[in-house]
Simulated scan of single mutants.
Amino acid sequence: MPATEITARLGIEPDEVTVRGSRLARPPRPVAHEWRVVCRKPGLTVDEQMARIIDRLFGHAERIGALAVELDRVDGDSGTGRLQVVRIFEHPEGATSPVDGLEKHSEQHRLLGWHLDARTLEFLRLTRAELDVDEYADG
Rank of each mutant, 00 (worst) to 15 (best):
T4A: 13
L111W: 09
G79W: 01
R56I: 06
H109G: 07
A118T: 05
H115Y: 14
W114E: 06
D55R: 12
S106W: 13
A32E: 14
D77C: 12
P92Q: 10
R52W: 05
P92E: 14
V74S: 08
E13L: 15
A3M: 00
V69P: 00
L102F: 12
F58V: 11
F123T: 02
V19I: 07
S78N: 09
D72Y: 01
D138P: 03
R119S: 01
G59F: 08
R63N: 12
V85T: 09
L24I: 08
L111Y: 08
L57V: 06
F58K: 00
D77F: 04
A3D: 04
V19N: 01
H60L: 01
H60G: 02
R119M: 02
E70K: 05
E93D: 13
L102C: 11
R56E: 03
A118S: 13
R40G: 14
H91A: 07
L83F: 03
G81S: 08
G43V: 05
P2M: 07
H105F: 10
T120F: 01
D100I: 07
R52H: 05
A66V: 08
V133G: 03
Q108R: 15
L112K: 12
S106F: 14
V37N: 04
E34N: 12
F58G: 02
E93S: 14
I64M: 05
D47L: 04
H60C: 04
L121K: 02
L131V: 06
D75K: 10
E16P: 00
H109P: 12
T80I: 15
L112N: 09
H105D: 13
D47Q: 12
T120D: 01
D47R: 04
E5W: 10
G11N: 06
V99C: 07
E103G: 10
L44W: 08
W35M: 11
P2S: 05
L126E: 05
R128E: 09
D138Q: 09
I88W: 07
T7K: 13
T80C: 13
E48Q: 15
